[in-house]
Computed example of a mutant assay.
Amino acid sequence: MKLFATSAAALALVAAPMAASAVELSYGYQANAMFPEDGDTYYSGEGYIEGTASGVTLGLWAGTTDIDESVDFEISLGYGWEFATGVTLDATATGYTNSEDGYDDTDVNLELGFPVSDPFAIYAGATYLIDAEDWDVYAGAVYSFGDFAVTGEVGDDGTTYWSLEGAYAFTDNVWASAEYADADGSDYEVTVSVGYDF
């Protein structure tokens, strides 16, 4: 859900907050069906609420799956800038916890987005998991036409992974997507999702 071609000199420009001072609230829910290579099928649901003001974003997220019936929770705090050329920079800190096994961690993420053309954008980012002391670096591209968007991403979190996703917006609120994801040494997985955003 992110996203833009200019020289590296653009990054030296003074950045400005991406949002106006008024608080903007958004929330939504999505249902997922996961089809891993082993032939099993899993279902999950997740919901979020997010508030943004003056470039600062605070978000709460919760999700559950029938794999182990546990609930995952996240809270995130981020800040976004947009440079004069349209290049974007987002910095986010996120805390995670799981209701079943007590697993928790915190990560920090930086992501740059570059507008190549009106329908095409590229992005790259890095995430550091503080407790696990692990890195995840990734890059991707998004191409949009009409209400349809295709996203491809490749990354490395100790294992090289990649994904390809197509998403379609039926209305301003209702959308659906299908994603193929794979990683070295792992089975592939196809995930179909439908969501409603308020």
Rank of each mutant, 00 (worst) to 15 (best):
G45N: 07
T97N: 12
A22D: 10
T41E: 14
E82M: 09
E50N: 14
A12R: 14
F73N: 05
V192I: 09
V174D: 05
L77N: 02
T127W: 02
A121M: 13
A8P: 10
E50F: 00
Y79W: 03
A16L: 07
L110F: 08
G158A: 03
D184Q: 11
L3P: 10
V87Q: 12
L164D: 00
E179V: 09
F73R: 09
A91Q: 15
A15C: 13
A126E: 10
A22I: 02
V14H: 14
V56K: 01
V150S: 02
D184A: 13
T151C: 02
G28W: 04
D134N: 13
F120N: 07
A121N: 11
D187I: 05
E37P: 06
V23C: 01
A124M: 06
V137E: 08
S163I: 00
D184S: 15
M34Q: 12
P36T: 06
I49G: 11
F4T: 12
Y188E: 14
G155I: 00
G86V: 03
T6K: 12
V56W: 12
D104R: 14
T52K: 10
A183C: 09
E24Y: 00
S21Y: 00
G152M: 05
A176V: 10
D134K: 15
E46L: 15
T97L: 13
G155E: 01
D101F: 05
E74L: 09
K2W: 03
E189D: 15
A84Y: 01
S54W: 05
D68T: 08
D66G: 05
A178H: 04
V150N: 03
W175A: 06
L3H: 11
A121Q: 13
A176M: 11
G95A: 15
